[in-house]
């Protein structure tokens, strides 16, 4: 009897202390919705990366499209399908900064502190903007692909393959968001966050950017082989040009996940440092 009373009393006491709290997923969705709303209020922050990607896509296709058939390994294949993944990846890496930009705005306006004073989970404060960023990444990839289709793209794997490409793009961008978010939380500064984003620039081009990996040699080949983005690029290209290739896709997904794990560990550390009471 005595035991029943004791165990019975405890949950009651706790219920009065922790009044209704939104489940974590609802918190994340709520914050992501709010971030999407503000992102759409400042389209000037998200449109340029897409515009640049589309611009380069058109340029590559018009200048190199005709010559590509002379490249060994690409004979008889579409150069557009070969180069489109590069455009998608560059827009993904640019879009990886969206979550961080939103965080920096909250840090500098002081709204972040205001949120810390609510019962919101610390993780949701970061995962909300990251989820919003993922939605935008999907939109950006879709826009680039649509332009590709308008230019005459005929993907080997059809619509499901295009969806898989979008999925990879979102995964990659969201993984890298862990890095820019760490910079945002660590510095609280828009300039530093933007600076951190530039690391993606060499990463995009130290890959088998313009010719197949097999044609690269020397240091560039080594760099490309070590660069995880190469494997994402190869996975996307296989979907566009050759068809479903499980091994290549797995490598692409694995490369992204390994990267994302490292970057999210960093982001978790930055979040703890930022929100730890001093």
């Amino acid at each position: 009897m005595a035991v029943t009373t004791m165990t019975g009393a405890r949950p009651q006491a706790e219920a009065t202390l922790t009044t209704p709290r939104l489940p974590l997923l609802r918190q994340i969705a709520l914050l992501a919705g709010r971030n999407l709303m503000t992102i759409f209020r400042t389209p000037e922050a998200i449109l340029p990366p897409v515009a640049i990607s589309v611009f380069f896509l058109v340029i590559y296709q018009s200048t190199l499209g005709g010559a590509a058939s002379f490249l060994p390994g690409l004979a008889g294949k579409s150069y557009l399908g070969f180069i489109l993944p590069l455009s998608i990846i560059s827009s993904s890496l640019a879009g990886a900064g969206i979550a961080a930009q939103n965080l920096v705005r909250d840090l500098s306006s002081g709204y972040f502190d205001k949120l810390l004073l609510t019962p919101v989970s610390r993780a949701a404060l970061v995962l909300g903007p990251i989820l919003a960023g993922a939605v935008i990444l999907g939109l950006q990839a879709s826009i680039v692909i649509t332009v590709g289709l308008l230019l005459g793209l005929q993907p080997a794997t059809g619509l499901p393959g295009l969806l898989a490409v979008i999925g990879l793009a979102v995964l990659l961008g969201t993984g890298f968001a862990g890095f820019t978010v760490s910079a945002a939380l660590g510095s609280g500064s828009a300039a530093a966050t933007q600076g951190a984003g530039f690391i993606f620039f060499p990463l995009t081009f130290l890959t088998a950017s313009f010719v197949p990996l097999a044609l690269l040699s020397g240091w560039l080949r080594t760099a490309a082989e070590l660069n995880p983005i190469t494997y994402v690029l190869e996975a996307m290209r296989s979907l566009m040009l050759t068809g479903w290739d499980g091994a290549v896709l797995l490598k692409g997904v694995a490369a992204t996940l390994i990267l994302a794990t490292a970057m999210y560990a960093l982001a978790g550390f930055a979040l703890r440092t930022r929100t730890r009471r001093k």
């Binding site: 202390l17 922790t18 009044t19 709010r34 709303m37 503000t38 209020r41 400042t42 705005r105 909250d106 306006s109 002081g110 709204y111 972040f112 502190d113 205001k114 004073l117 609510t118 019962p119 009471r277």
Partner: peptide, 21 residues
């Protein structure tokens, strides 16, 4: 701290509002 946040209302000296909302 969690219980304190539930019962305390706070208006800090530096007003923290998202200008876009």
């Amino acid at each position: 701290a969690g219980q304190v946040r539930q019962i305390a209302g706070v208006a800090l000296q530096e007003i923290g509002l998202d200008p876009l909302m």
